[in-house]
Design a protein around this nucleic acid. Structure first.
Length: 608
RNA sequence: GCUGCUGUAGCUCAGUGGUAGAGCACUUCCUUGGUAAGGAAGAGGUCAUGGGUUCAAGUCCCAUCAGCAGCUCCA
């Protein structure tokens, strides 16, 4: 039952991975692709579920990137304990099930057989299979399923699996449809591979920004403040300040100018911009100020437009590049908010470029260069996606959309990057290039974006005076590097596992005097480091030295300076560097010089 | 929003309708220690919130809020 008709796309469609069905060599470690194994294990799981829960109705059960799932409709909820029972039953069935058998049925017969078994979702699934394709069934033991295949030959081969979680999922991914129970699991040919995957899952859990955020005093969320609203603590405030400084430096170098705009403005502004028409369900409700409705901004663009439109512009002054770290609020449904990654109040690292049509591709190339420079500084690889016009809710003529797409393609070409296609993924006002960053654990995050907009200039009737004295329409580019500071810092926490590069570290240097009598010397070091605007923490001698070292290491401080008699006398420090076993004694001045160079380089490693 | 689950000390978590617990963290004292857990004592709780059942509720029921795994949607 791998056919993904109408379901969510999966990275490994089972039908595309066919190897010989009957003649696989039995003496190799991986006789079939993982997706084929996982799909077969999904069948095995479904048969076990039916054994334990007669009357269950089946949905889809495909292999996915890291495993497989199968959807079930059952009167009773499944829980973790039940997963154990199902696993046990699966092992039992696998032992005696023997091989998979393939059977072709006519469309009518298939529906009849499935209807007799009460499998109404499967009957619907038959109708989703294209006319010209064969309707096939696969069985193992006495259990049969509508399925495109392929499968491994026998279930008594050695392989290793684990059921991981259970969650709700709409039939065919549509929230208007009934919700089924989905069991996720994974399978590998070897125990080592399974263990490695489970270790990866464990690491993902350990590096979860919500866990690290609480553990390391980085940020908090509060029920009494409301869902999706983030409180940045001082230690993460330091990281944010560095991110902002870096951001402004790189923007000012490229001709961006800072602007500041209000958080709450008259609703009419969003009527003109089209937000009320196209974006209202994402906006906070209006508030009444002396009889006039006001709205909290979900985006900064209308404000920047007011600044641009406050006076006339000559073609000579374009492009105008306006930048703002603007606080925005968007209504997210309660089930969507997630730590710092998905919030209701956030800071867009926003900028709008107003330019002439002949400047567009060059501007886009410039933004791509900026994004590439910044995200690689953080150590990310990225993929760029070209997102085209959405099917519902969009504004503007087709031709305008085509022009914008062409400019985005041209800009990418000039900047020398490849574009993947994201059909229908554009904003309501124009097409865009979205960047997905790949983190240290191999996961992708959507952050940076470049959006072409021919529509807002139209709506606000923006103009500039061209060289021929005629009024012309400028083009607007919306763009963000971080996307939102909240999401980006969340990604950074997970990417680094909170072992931030030196320039970003909440605490950069911990000074640890061995005994009380060394505190004077330690304090001198602290003052000097602080005068260089380094973030330093003096852990005084009221508690045991080992305890203080343990604390500093737990906080993942890049450099610990341990100082005692010897150091105070010689003017040195004994440096314990994050990730290294051995300690080295160096003159304090040399240490300061080293870390200042390291900070200035914004290097990823502690070596400058 | 939907399905399921969860909410007990700062953190991780025990707790069977009948007197609220442990480890770590914290405070004080002892220990003066050269690179990841020295010792002792102490303090810390509206058991998320509001209703209900009961002689009696952390425990059972309902609602609300928040969180978790997903689905759907997104920066």
């Amino acid at each position: 039952m791998a056919r993904q008709v109408g379901g969510r796309p999966t990275s490994l469609p089972a039908g595309k991975t066919s190897m010989g069905r009957q003649d696989a060599p039995s003496d190799v470690a991986e006789p079939y692709p993982l997706s084929t194994l996982r799909h077969s294990v999904a069948h095995l799981m479904a048969s076990a579920v039916e054994k334990l829960h007669p009357g269950v109705q089946f949905g889809f059960g495909p292999p996915i990137e890291h495993g497989f799932y199968y959807d079930f409709q059952l009167p009773e909820p499944l829980d973790a304990k039940e997963l154990k029972r199902i696993e046990k039953e699966m092992r039992k069935i696998a032992k005696k099930a023997g091989g998979f058998e393939r059977k072709v049925r006519s469309r009518e017969e298939a529906k009849k057989v499935l209807a007799e078994r009460g499998q109404s979702f499967k009957v619907e699934a038959v109708d989703l299979i294209p006319e010209e394709e064969e309707i096939t069934f696969y069985s193992h033991g006495d259990w049969e399923d509508l399925c495109e295949g392929p499968h491994i030959d026998r279930l008594d081969r050695p392989f290793h699996f684990k059921l991981l979680s259970v969650a709700g999922a709409y039939w065919r991914g549509d929230e208007k449809n009934p919700m089924l129970q989905r069991i996720y699991g994974t399978a590998f040919w070897t125990k080592e591979a399974l263990d490695e995957h489970l270790a990866w899952l464990e690491k993902v859990k350990e590096q979860d920004h919500r866990r690290l955020g609480a553990e390391l005093d980085l940020f908090s969320l509060h029920a009494e403040a409301g869902a999706g609203l983030v409180f940045w603590h001082p230690r993460l405030g330091a990281v944010r300040r560095e991110m902002e400084t870096f951001w402004w430096e790189e923007h000012e170098k490229r001709g961006y100018e800072a602007v500041y705009t209000p958080h709450v403005v008259r609703e009419d502004l969003f009527r003109v911009s089209g937000h009320l028409e196209n974006y209202a369900e994402m906006m906070y409700a209006p508030m009444d100020i002396e009889g006039i409705p006001y709205r909290v901004k979900p985006m900064n663009c209308p404000g920047h437009i007011l600044i641009f439109d406050d006076r006339g512009h000559s073609y000579r002054e374009l492009p105008v590049r306006m930048a703002e770290l603007g606080g925005c609020y968007r209504y997210e449904r309660s089930g969507q908010v997630h730590g710092m990654m998905r919030v209701r109040g956030f800071t867009l690292d926003d900028a709008h470029i107003f330019c002439r049509p002949d400047q567009l591709a060059e501007e886009i190339a410039g933004v791509i260069e900026l994004i590439r420079h910044m995200v690689t500084t953080f150590g990310f690889e990225f993929t760029a996606y070209l997102a085209t016009r959405p099917e519902e809710k969009s504004i503007g003529a087709d031709e305008v959309w085509e022009n914008a797409l062409a400019a985005l393609r041209d800009g990418a070409k000039r900047a020398g990057i490849e574009l993947e296609l994201d059909e229908g993924g554009g904003a309501f006002y124009g097409p865009k290039i979205d960047f997905k960053l790949k983190d240290a654990l191999g996961r992708e995050w959507q952050t940076s974006t470049i959006q072409c907009d021919f529509n807002l200039p139209e709506r606000f009737d923006l103009t500039f005076v061209d060289s021929d004295g005629e009024k012309k329409r400028p083009i607007m580019v919306h763009r963000a590097v971080y996307g939102s500071l909240e999401r980006f810092v969340g990604v950074l926490i997970e990417h680094y596992g909170a072992r931030f590069p030196f320039w970003l570290s909440p605490t950069q240097v911990a000074v640890i005097p061995i005994r009380e009598e060394h505190e004077d010397y330690a304090r001198k070091l602290e003052e000097r480091l602080r005068s260089e605007r380094l973030r330093v923490d003096l852990l005084d001698a009221h508690s045991h030295m080992n305890k203080r070292i343990r604390q500093a290491k737990k906080e993942k401080v890049p450099f610990l300076l341990v100082v005692g008699d010897r150091e105070a006398e010689e003017g040195t420090v004994t440096v314990s560097e994050r990730g290294k076993e051995e300690q080295v004694s160096v003159p304090f001045d040399a240490f300061v010089e080293r870390v200042l160079a390291l900070r200035a380089s914004r290097g990823l490693d502690l070596e400058a």
